[in-house]
Design a protein around this nucleic acid. Structure first.
Lengths: 241, 241
DNA sequence: ACAAAAGTGTTCCCATTACACCCATGC
DNA sequence: GCATGGGTGTAATGGGAACACTTTTGT
């Protein structure tokens, strides 16, 4: 077991990452489930080494779970209520997992580490869901994509963190042209539109949407995509970096 | 002297506040100067008590320097580079102030506290400059308003922090209707326009500006303000909360 | 009467929205 | 041919920018 209390981390500071993916007209969030009795879910998180930039720490945490690099990543909010700690979670965890008390000394140190109040920096990431192979680390029982409309109940304030991340994503989407990070290398205009409709949870007019996106002048049109369907083949596009 | 190392603070976490005020067509920032040899300026900052919300901590830091409560305050960015520490600043401070070495034990503890790498949460505040009576605390030599276009060179990355705060202010100004926090209780339309022109550093057309602001539907028109000038008296307005 | 600045109305332009039409594809 | 979905053009709409004019005030 990886013992945070024995690592050279900044104390009482954590990073929590909301990893967004998109598939099948659903906006999804990558969420590990802990390998303990009792159903504990938490967004991927971690701590910051003494000699590590916070952005680098977030990137490392992301790579551990997704296996990919060069991820679009943005800091969005700091969660720092005085009452923000894992006390309830830990107590329930221990009561349901009495056998986890092994080496008394280390357990005590770990308990004290985790039970303290933490200030957490929230990051959100946008990834191409096809490129991600969810990685279990440490104490993960599973790492799964959940539809954002159907999230499990998570520990501490992690459900609020996801909500705040989505709000920020919506605010930044138009301005920063970041939506394409959620799509594969190539995609059709319909797929872009469906993505936008999913994120904003509202419909867009097809023709005007196409014009709006093309006017951004960030896509290049490739060959047509023959799907075998009985209709005109759509063009494929690629984001021009 | 107030010794951070002996307070019950979260370690390696700080809060820095950019306090904006407005006067005489100038956007100003409240900046204390340290009471030591060598010219050291730093935006008002502080640390977070173990039992204190980070928002409360920011509010406390603000009240200490401005003397006023109910300040508009917003978290805007976390500065967390690994190399972000006060080492250079402290070394220069000590070399210029050799007599500050008093009680060896406490000095050593303080040195170790301040020399470490800090993660800092940036807040910006908008205040009515007329209501503020700048307060010196602890080691302040002075606390003054500086034109944002003519800031002193500050310690660590504090100049960057102010720049980032201004960027965020510009982005949020339209959306959140917060500009009025920088004005007195009542004001004329011209004053609002001059404030906007100062913040965005560009001119606005008078008639269209008036329409734009009134269409926000957040101002109430009061009586006219007779200035004694040889022209039509402008209306006074008040922000409707 | 006049200068200065406040207040308001009106036109112009552009970008978004809505509506309409044509095209390619496989059955 | 025809149903289906893709691509594009054009008219209507609305908000902001530009321009013009009127009103109020003190000298």
């Amino acid at each position: 077991m990886h013992n945070p209390s024995q690592q050279n981390y900044i104390q009482q500071l954590s990073i929590d990452c909301v990893i967004f993916g998109y598939h099948d007209k659903q906006l999804k969030v990558l969420i590990p489930k802990l390998n303990f009795n009792g159903d504990f879910w938490a967004v991927p998180g971690g701590f910051v080494y003494q000699d590590e930039d916070i952005d680098k720490a977030a990137d490392r945490i992301l790579q551990e779970r997704t296996g990919i690099t060069e991820i679009y990543l943005e800091q969005f909010h700091v969660f720092g209520k005085a009452a923000r700690n894992s006390q309830k979670f830990i107590d329930r965890l221990i009561s349901l997992n009495p056998d986890m008390l092994g080496d008394e000394l280390i357990v005590k140190a770990e308990y004290e580490w985790f039970a303290r109040r933490f200030v957490s920096i929230g990051y959100y990431a946008l990834v191409d869901i096809n490129k991600v192979i969810p990685q279990k680390i440490d104490l993960d029982d599973s790492v799964e994509w959940y539809n954002i409309k159907d999230l499990p109940e998570m520990i501490i304030d992690h459900n609020e963190i996801v909500i705040k991340a989505l709000e920020t994503l919506r605010l930044n989407l138009d301005e920063k042209l970041i939506a394409f990070n959620l799509l594969p290398e190539t995609f059709t205009m319909r797929e872009v539109q469906e993505l936008y409709e999913t994120i904003f949870d509202k419909p867009f007019a097809r023709n005007n949407f196409q014009k709006m996106i093309l006017d951004l002048d960030v896509l290049e049109r490739l060959e047509k995509k023959f799907t075998g369907a009985a209709n005109k083949a759509p063009y494929l596009y690629r984001f021009r970096k």
